[in-house]
Design a protein around this nucleic acid. Sequence first.
DNA 1: GCGTGTACGCACCTGGAGGTAACTAATGGA
DNA 2: TCCATTAGTTACCTCCAGGTGCGTACACGC
Lengths: 133, 133
Amino acid sequence: MDKPGFLERCDVLCESLSEEEDALTREIVARVADKWSLWTLSVLAGASGPLRFSRVMDQVEGISQKSLTKALRQLERDGLVTRKMFAEVPPRVEYAITPMGVEMLEQVAPLWTWVAKSVGHFQTARSQFDSRD
Amino acid sequence: MDKPGFLERCDVLCESLSEEEDALTREIVARVADKWSLWTLSVLAGASGPLRFSRVMDQVEGISQKSLTKALRQLERDGLVTRKMFAEVPPRVEYAITPMGVEMLEQVAPLWTWVAKSVGHFQTARSQFDSRD
DNA sequence: GCGTGTACGCACCTGGAGGTAACTAATGGA
DNA sequence: TCCATTAGTTACCTCCAGGTGCGTACACGC
């Protein structure tokens, strides 16, 4: 079996990263699979401009206030989203995606579409496995 | 802000999936971020052939027996890995990556390398955020 | 006889993710 | 006067990932 392109590229890259950088890389990649982060980001990407907290919450169906707050904070901390507070009452806060956030989504898209396209393969693989003794 | 390519493609794809297929898609994507699954898969990809359980465990540094068993079972169930048992004592079991597993890694590679390449951006974004009042 | 090696399964423990519900502060409308 | 609104925060609870450690079956070399 040949060493696939994945390893050729990644081994080299990973060796050049410090332990701290490696941990951060894993953390960022992990965010892709987070239940809410990517969904939240894609809602902001799909909007025609900044969105208020409650507008985001409407579109990310099923999310709780607490989880949305947390997801947005993390995205903001990683520079994928901006947060703008207005000194009004009732409070108004607007969130927008950054160029970095857009770039991130673009990187995830091929993987996502491949999985969605291959969903049938996974279903049959699973049912085959499950119907064994 | 323009609707990025991610959504153009994914919205269409996601609408054509049943609720069950959509859940499965999310589950598979989540596996990418799993602490051990992808690492395990890449070890099998990098080997020149099938590997015994303990050989995999040597290379996936820090994993526990329990977690490796679980990761391999999931990968097998999803058709990304094959498991061959030999009726010997002491027991021998060999794991190998499937073509589907290789394909999966190839899809993940660009994302991973992009993140690793961008790790500096994330570091500065975080330290900026953290040094605010 | 006795330790060694193998690929687990099982029981127990811990931390973190994530849900619900209640509280907040100031304003404008009924 | 009373109430809804908004973007949180906090307390409380549950679930699950994942770690540790132990048991196991049996052939082999010493």
